[in-house]
Structure formats: structure tokens, C-alpha cells
């Protein structure tokens, strides 16, 4: 009669022991967290599963750890609401600095306000929050998605010699970076008075497989497509697969991406891609970590903005770049 419940009691006990062991183990691995007074920095990405994020976290963490800091990385799962509550957690943990990539430029503002009131400094990194958040943060370091979009757009205009038709393979509809890229493309076309029209914009959820599908449909639909703007190099890879399978020759349709992945550099050498915008997560992670360290040492951040270069990579200079990621 009691056999089942005894067994289940044992399972429960085991589970609790496992929980204890795991908690204890984690505590042992990082002994100085609170007791030893070691300083902690929070690295808050919108989500942690995107390919760019993994290498960035590693590079940022390595740089911080070398300087004797601990790094805590919450996972906001690309949800602005979760990110704002994660900020609450970091405030409760009394971290010394929050380095935050806003999932959404506006949604994060109230959380930044709370951090400011609670005396926890925040530096936005990678992508900026809305300018109206500037009074709540100590500064911004990163790449500037809009500026990046401008470089990519210039590449596109050059690739098409100022006239033709572009199809866009975007990341996620309404996602901050994608909105900024779209704006940069519009602005560039207007500024350069280029005779370029945008044939279509379709989302991929950052998936190369989706990019392949959408490109297949573009090829069927648009006989007059001269160039494709892929919102990152990973989805540009998916675009190339579709072009190859359709028997299209390298360079026949110009592809521009963003990133500078090893795959993209190779594609530029092979003529499949016209160009891309360099954004190495490894360089960027270390760069932002150094800015964080500067603040932690001096108690202030000068200048407020520190924006990394967005070098343009095309066939003329591709050999200068090493595949980092």
C-alpha cells in the first residue's frame, strides 16, 4: 500500500538533495560572490540564443574576469517585459554596473528610470535605447544600428550603381534593429537620389532556412531583382543557398549583409556577396567591457557616446579581414 508513496518520497528527497548539491556546487564554484565583496557586472542581452550573442558574452566575460570582475548574464528571452523585471533582479542583487542591450528602445525606459533612482548605473551597449533615456544612463557604447544600416545601404547603392530594384530579407517585423535598417535604407536612397525601388520586405525570424524559402519566392516572382539586402550574414547564407539552387551565377544578384562572418568573407571572395558591414561580436564584447572597466575605475564615463567603426567590407578589402566568428 505504502510502496508507491514511499518510493515517491524517496524521489522527492533525491530531487531536493540534487537541488541542494547543484546550488551548493554553484556556490562553491563562485565563492566570492557576495561574501568576498567581489564586484559584479550584469550583462543583459535581450536574449541569449542568437548566434551573435554567444561569442559576445564570452568575449565580454573574459575581459571582465581578467580585471577581477564577475559577470552575471540573465536571459530576457527577447521579451521587453522580462527584461524590465530582470533589471529589478539586478537592482536587488546590487550589481556594480548593468550593461544592457535594450530589446526595445522605448519599453526599457521605465526600468532605466528605476535603476537610476535605485543608484545602479546602467550603460547601454550594442544598440541604443531611445534618446529620451539618456538622462537615466551613464553612456552608450556599441555599434549604432542606424549607422550600420547606412553603411550597408551605401554598399547596396554602389552595388547597383544607383539604380535598380532591391528585395529585403529582414530579421523580425517590428524588431528594433530591423526598423533602423529599413529607415537607413530609405534615407540613403533619398539622400543619394538613387533610382532604387524596394520590391518587397519579408521577415525570416533570423532563420537561414526561412531566408532560403523567401528568396526562392522572390526569384519566382521578381524577374527584375538586382540586389538583396539581408539583415545579417547568417540569413545572407540562406539567401545564397536559394540563388545557387536556382542556377543563378555569383554576382548576378548582389547580396549585402551585416556582420562579417567567416562564411560571408568567403562569399565575398567567391563573388556571391557584394559586401557586408563588419561587426565582430568578439571585438565588440571586449570593447564594451573595456568601457565598463573604465567607468568602474574612474566612477564616470567620458565621452557619453563611444561608437565603434562600422567598416565596410567588399571585394577590394576583404583580404584584410580575418574570419573571427
Amino acid at each position: 500500500m505504502g510502496k508507491f508513496s514511499r518510493a515517491s518520497g524517496c524521489v522527492l528527497a533525491l530531487l531536493l538533495c540534487a537541488g541542494l548539491a547543484f546550488a551548493g556546487g554553484a556556490a562553491e564554484a563562485k565563492p566570492a560572490a557576495e561574501a568576498g565583496g567581489q564586484s559584479t557586472v550584469a550583462l543583459m542581452w535581450g536574449g541569449t540564443d542568437a548566434p551573435f550573442v554567444g561569442p559576445h558574452i564570452r568575449s565580454f566575460t573574459e575581459t571582465m574576469e581578467k580585471a577581477g570582475y564577475k559577470v552575471v548574464v540573465p536571459d530576457s528571452k527577447w521579451d521587453p517585459a522580462k527584461q524590465s523585471t530582470d533589471v529589478d533582479d539586478m537592482i536587488a542583487m546590487k550589481v556594480d554596473l548593468i550593461c544592457l542591450v535594450p530589446v526595445d528602445p522605448l519599453a526599457i525606459i521605465p526600468a532605466l528610470k528605476k535603476a537610476k533612482v535605485s543608484g545602479v548605473p546602467v550603460m547601454t551597449i550594442n544598440t541604443e535605447a531611445d534618446k529620451s533615456a539618456n538622462e537615466y544612463i551613464i553612456g552608450f557604447s556599441g555599434v549604432g544600428a542606424y549607422e550600420q544600416g547606412l553603411v550597408a545601404s551605401e554598399l547596396l547603392v554602389d552595388a547597383m550603381r544607383g539604380k535598380g530594384n532591391i528585395a529585403v530579407v529582414e530579421g523580425v517585423s517590428g524588431f528594433n534593429v530591423c526598423v533602423l535598417y529599413a529607415k537607413a535604407l530609405d534615407d540613403t536612397i533619398k539622400k543619394k537620389k538613387a533610382a532604387i525601388s524596394i520590391l518587397a520586405v519579408q521577415p525570416t525570424n533570423w532563420s537561414p532556412a526561412e531566408a532560403t524559402k523567401i528568396t526562392e519566392d522572390y526569384i519566382t516572382r521578381f524577374k527584375n531583382m538586382d540586389a538583396i539586402f539581408a539583415h545579417d550574414d547568417y540569413i545572407a547564407g540562406g539567401v545564397i543557398v536559394a540563388l545557387k539552387e536556382a542556377g543563378i551565377k555569383p554576382g548576378q544578384i548582389k547580396i549585402v549583409g551585416v556582420g562579417g562572418t567567416g562564411d560571408a568573407l568567403q562569399a565575398i571572395k567567391d563573388g556571391w556577396m557584394f559586401g557586408t558591414v563588419q561587426q565582430s561580436p568578439i571585438t565588440e564584447g571586449a570593447f564594451e567591457a573595456r568601457r565598463a572597466l573604465e567607468f568602474l575605475k574612474n566612477g564616470k564615463l567620458e565621452p557619453f557616446y563611444s561608437i565603434m567603426d562600422n567598416p565596410r567590407i567588399d571585394a577590394s578589402n576583404v583580404n584584410k579581414y580575418k574570419a573571427e566568428f
Binding site: W206, P208, A209, T212, Y234, G238, V241, D263
Partner: peptide, 9 residues
């Protein structure tokens, strides 16, 4: 087909 994979696929 794609020759790439990630935890997001």
C-alpha cells in the same frame, strides 16, 4: 542543404 546550424534552428 544550408551547411550551417545553430541552437536557434
Amino acid at each position: 542543404r544550408l551547411n550551417t546550424a545553430s541552437g536557434l534552428i
